[in-house]
């Protein structure tokens, strides 16, 4: 009799717990239910072919998978130094009284909606780059092996992988930065004092701290990569939306899983195979994200902590 009241409390809270568990099924179940027959029948085509023509009943989606990975790779690569810099700046280098403000500004980067970044990229950032930086890049690397393919294209456009990558890099930076900043601020002070006691400079202290929190940096970078992988609106608005075969090129137009879904799902509602193919691509996207999170857990011992913190 004594524990009855508490059992009632646990039952009430349990409803919330069960519904949270249900939430993940609400996401996964409809996606799997509406794609597994397609995946069984045409899954191989979807992940190996690059012929995408729903009208012709061709559903080769490898270029979208590669496009997602390509965009994720480059934006994460560019976001990493930004995130580390912002973390060091906001927790160590900026004037003490302004630290809260700078930290808040970094968080603000994450608060602006994806679709707003997309619109800014579409109207302002992309056109500006296409008329200034991109032609310079193209001519600068035209003779260089390997790099020339990255920047070779028939026609420079404001909407291309590069524009999507650059905007995405900015968008995912705060996620990595928040985790790195948290670890940075938790570094034992006496370790830093030891660096100074040995005659080290500020830079030595920063280097020491960064090497001490390597694992957290990695966790932050992986989480940021996960965000890049699933990022949708900005990418769709900036990537150029070409369904042609994937080329490892930055100034080319392209597509990702998320962009093809946003672009085609409306019309796909009329064509079951088409909508199932797009749903299957979403399932593949979630699988890719899960692999990333799994690797994160394997590689970084601080990962789970960082996940919750992010």
């Amino acid at each position: 009799m004594t524990r009855i009241k508490e059992r009632r409390l646990l039952a009430l809270l349990g409803i919330g717990g069960v519904l949270v568990l249900a939430a993940i099924f609400v996401v996964l179940f409809p996606l799997l239910a509406n794609s597994y027959t397609f995946l069984l029948k045409r899954g191989v085509e979807l992940v190996t072919s690059m012929d995408w023509s729903p009208m012709m009943n061709q559903f080769g989606g490898l270029q979208f998978i590669l496009g997602s990975l390509w965009v994720t790779f480059w934006s994460t690569l560019l976001a990493t130094p930004l995130a580390v810099s912002l973390a060091v700046f906001a927790s160590d280098l900026s004037p003490r009284r302004l630290r809260g403000l700078f930290g808040g500004l970094v968080d603000l980067i994450a608060a602006i909606p994806s679709v707003v970044y997309g619109y800014w990229g579409l109207m302002i950032f992309g056109p500006l780059l296409a008329s200034t930086v991109y032609p310079l890049l193209q001519s600068a690397f035209s003779g260089v092996p390997l790099l020339s393919t990255l920047f070779s294209t028939n026609a420079i456009t404001p909407q291309c992988f590069m524009t999507a990558v650059l905007v995405l890099a900015l968008m995912i930076t705060p996620y990595a930065s928040a985790i790195i900043r948290n670890a940075y601020e938790m570094t034992p002070k006496d370790m830093i004092e030891a660096v100074y006691a040995l005659g080290g400079s500020k830079w030595d202290a920063i280097k020491m701290t960064l090497s001490y929190i390597k694992s957290s940096i990695l966790a932050g970078v992986i989480i940021a990569a996960g965000r890049a992988l699933g990022e949708t609106m900005a990418v769709t608005m900036l990537i150029g939306n070409s369904v042609g075969p994937f080329k490892p090129c930055l100034l080319c137009r392209g597509a990702t899983i998320t962009s093809i879904v946003v672009n085609e799902f409306q019309e796909a509602m009329m064509n079951p195979s088409h909508s199932e193919a797009l749903t299957a691509l979403i399932v593949i996207l979630i699988a890719m994200g899960s692999v990333l999170l799994y690797l994160g857990r394997k590689i970084s011992k601080n990962f789970v902590e960082a996940e919750i913190h992010a």
């Binding site: 993940i24 996606l31 996960g226 998320t258 994200g289």
Partner: peptide, 16 residues
Amino acid sequence: LVEVPTIAAGIAIYWL
């Protein structure tokens, strides 16, 4: 759930 791409939630609810 925080890590699930938001487009996935949209497509799931479309079907559901």
